Computed example of a mutant assay.
Amino acid sequence: MNDVLLLLARLLIALLFVGGAVQKAVSPDDAGALLAGFGLPVALVWGALVYNALAGVALVAGWAVRPVALSLAVYCGVTSVFHFLPDDPWQISIFVKNWAIAGGCLALSVAGAGRFAWATQ
């Protein structure tokens, strides 16, 4: 049962990051506005899109789950800064969710892919 739950965890977390990549592709201006608000280049959206997509696919495939999940945990922590806008309850909700997702990614980095991996770990 643990392997089934690890697969489910990988798929659910991957869905979030692949969905984030799609969202950035469809509407890059939304993410770009957050970056610009911090004085960062809007072009960073495209690097984040590629990273989100590749990391999500790696989790689905079960490829290099430990290092990918660890890097995703760091990514969530770093990107949470962009959502720490105390006057906006929606952004604070995203801030807290980023840290919760980081926790799930840390757990995956400890547990690994489990038995149901389509790629070599």
Score class of each variant (00 low, 15 high):
D3Q: 12
L5F: 07
L6I: 01
L6S: 02
A9K: 03
R10N: 08
L11K: 08
L16G: 11
F17E: 02
G19N: 09
G19R: 05
V22L: 12
P28K: 09
A31G: 09
L35W: 07
G37T: 13
F38I: 04
G39P: 04
L40I: 11
L40W: 10
V42Y: 06
V42R: 09
W46T: 01
A48R: 07
A53P: 08
V57N: 00
A58H: 08
V60S: 02
V60T: 07
A61Y: 10
A61R: 10
G62H: 05
A64E: 05
A64T: 05
R66Q: 07
S71L: 12
V74L: 09
V74N: 04
C76I: 01
G77R: 02
H83V: 09
H83A: 11
H83T: 06
P86I: 08
D88T: 03
D88W: 02
P89L: 13
I92R: 05
S93W: 04
V96P: 01
V96L: 07
W99K: 10
W99P: 05
I101E: 09
G103I: 12
G104L: 11
L106K: 07
L106H: 07
L108I: 14
S109T: 08
S109L: 06
V110I: 15
G112R: 00
G112N: 04
A113D: 01
G114S: 11
F116L: 14
A117N: 08
T120N: 15
Q121G: 14
